[in-house]
Lab assay of single mutants.
Amino acid sequence: LKLEELTVSELRQQLRLRGLPVSGTKSMLLERMRG
């Protein structure tokens, strides 16, 4: 599964599971997911 294919709400869910901030735009969330 490519990160880009996730919805913003799915990205936020994944970030929350990792204890990361869930604020910002989709591109910011993607950068955060990539670490």
Rank of each mutant, 00 (worst) to 15 (best):
R12L: 04
L3K: 14
Q14T: 05
S9G: 12
R12V: 08
M33C: 09
G19K: 09
V8A: 15
R32E: 10
Q14K: 11
G35L: 13
R16A: 14
S9L: 08
L15N: 08
L15Q: 07
L3Y: 03
R16E: 14
L30T: 09
R32Q: 09
S23M: 10
L11P: 02
L17P: 00
L29H: 07
R32T: 14
S23E: 14
S27M: 02
L1G: 06
E10R: 03
S27D: 15
K2S: 10
E31T: 07
L17C: 12
Q13F: 12
L17T: 13
L20E: 10
R34C: 13
E4Y: 01
L6Q: 09
S9V: 12
S27E: 15
R34A: 12
M33S: 07
S9Q: 15
G24F: 01
Q13R: 09
S27Q: 15
L29Q: 04
L11W: 00
V8D: 06
S9D: 15
S27F: 00
R12F: 02
Q13W: 08
E5K: 11
Q13I: 13
V22D: 13
L1K: 13
L3N: 08
R16F: 12
L30P: 04
V8I: 03
G24M: 01
S9E: 15
L1I: 15
R12H: 03
G24A: 01
G19V: 00
Q14I: 14
L29A: 05
S9K: 15
L11Y: 04
E10H: 00
E4F: 02
R18G: 03
S23K: 10
K26D: 04
V22L: 10
E5C: 11
V22C: 09
V8R: 07
V22E: 14
M28G: 04
R32P: 05
K26Y: 15
M28E: 15
L1E: 15
R16D: 07
Q13H: 14
R32C: 02
S23C: 08
K2T: 07
K26Q: 10
S9A: 14
G19W: 00
Q14V: 10
K2N: 11
R12P: 02
M28W: 01
G35S: 09
R34E: 12
P21I: 01
K2P: 03
R16W: 11
L29N: 01
V22A: 14
L30F: 05
L20G: 02
L17Q: 13
R32I: 04
E4M: 05
E10M: 02
L15S: 10
E31N: 09
